[in-house]
Simulated assay, not measured.
Amino acid sequence: MSKIKKLTGSFRYTHWDPCLIISQIVAMQFVLYLTLCILIAVMQDLTSSTRTLDHLFQYHEIHVKDNEGRSVILAFVLNAIIGALVLWTLVGRTKLCLDFSCTFYGIHLLFCWVYNGSFPTTFSWWALNIACAAITCVAGEFLCLRTELQAIPLSNIGAKVDL
């Protein structure tokens, strides 16, 4: 009975593996923060401003008043697109993209909260992070779905199957 239950149901055999999930979360956090740091460093070089962690975690750094603030916003949006590629590479499952993108931005919220000592209240910070989470999730789902919907090669058609 258990063998039949394993064979029926979904296309993939799924097994809850907390070590895999935690390692994927840690890998996503590391890669996305690394790329965000690189993007912000490049943007700050282009705008001739000083490099600081405030650009990653301070709420008031996200604004459109000057080139420095716009470069931070651009870095976050580009990182969201890179995040979709990271989701596709590390996770590879369409139905998990929302979970992992919300986890990344939820952890980012906690880091910002701790760094600032207060909960974020600026509209620009929330709008940017929600938009980036949506970009990461939707683009990641698009990439994963394209991979999941590829045709399964049937090279052994007509081969004898032993049961």
Results as ranks from 00 to 15, higher is better:
residue 16 W to E: 02
residue 54 D to W: 04
residue 57 F to Q: 02
residue 69 G to A: 05
residue 45 D to M: 13
residue 125 W to L: 05
residue 29 Q to Y: 07
residue 50 T to M: 15
residue 140 G to L: 13
residue 46 L to G: 08
residue 146 R to L: 14
residue 5 K to N: 08
residue 38 I to Q: 05
residue 125 W to M: 07
residue 122 T to S: 14
residue 96 L to T: 02
residue 101 S to C: 08
residue 123 F to M: 13
residue 3 K to D: 09
residue 84 A to C: 09
residue 66 D to W: 02
residue 32 L to V: 02
residue 72 V to A: 10
residue 32 L to H: 01
residue 39 L to H: 08
residue 86 V to C: 08
residue 26 V to F: 15
residue 89 T to N: 10
residue 132 C to Q: 06
residue 48 S to V: 03
residue 51 R to N: 00
residue 137 C to T: 11
residue 44 Q to R: 11
residue 102 C to E: 07
residue 134 A to V: 14
residue 100 F to W: 11
residue 7 L to K: 12
residue 4 I to G: 09
residue 29 Q to S: 03
residue 148 E to H: 03
residue 38 I to R: 03
residue 137 C to V: 02
residue 122 T to Y: 04
residue 65 K to I: 07
residue 15 H to K: 12
residue 53 L to Y: 08
residue 23 S to K: 15
residue 100 F to M: 10
residue 49 S to Y: 10
residue 46 L to N: 06
residue 73 I to G: 04
residue 39 L to M: 08
residue 51 R to S: 05
residue 163 L to N: 07
residue 65 K to W: 06
residue 148 E to A: 13
residue 7 L to T: 00
residue 126 W to D: 02
residue 154 L to E: 12
residue 80 A to P: 01
residue 71 S to W: 03
residue 24 Q to M: 05
residue 35 T to N: 02
residue 52 T to F: 11
residue 102 C to M: 14
residue 154 L to D: 15
residue 47 T to C: 15
residue 51 R to L: 15
residue 73 I to Y: 01
residue 141 E to D: 06
residue 34 L to W: 09
residue 101 S to W: 12
residue 10 S to N: 07
residue 112 C to T: 11
residue 71 S to K: 05
residue 133 A to D: 03
residue 66 D to L: 07
residue 71 S to T: 04
residue 134 A to L: 15
residue 50 T to Q: 15
residue 159 A to V: 03
residue 85 L to D: 03
residue 156 N to I: 05
residue 95 K to M: 09
residue 95 K to S: 10
residue 62 I to G: 04
residue 75 A to E: 03
residue 107 I to K: 06
residue 127 A to K: 12
residue 49 S to W: 04
residue 25 I to Q: 08
residue 41 A to V: 00
residue 102 C to Q: 11
residue 121 T to W: 02
residue 74 L to H: 05
residue 91 V to S: 02
residue 142 F to T: 10
residue 104 F to R: 08
residue 66 D to P: 00
residue 83 G to L: 08
residue 144 C to H: 06
residue 133 A to P: 01
residue 147 T to N: 14
residue 77 V to A: 05
residue 97 C to N: 04
residue 106 G to I: 12
residue 35 T to W: 12
residue 161 V to I: 14
residue 104 F to S: 10
residue 19 C to M: 10
residue 13 Y to P: 00
residue 84 A to S: 15
residue 29 Q to K: 01
residue 88 W to I: 00
residue 94 T to N: 07
residue 63 H to D: 01
residue 132 C to W: 05
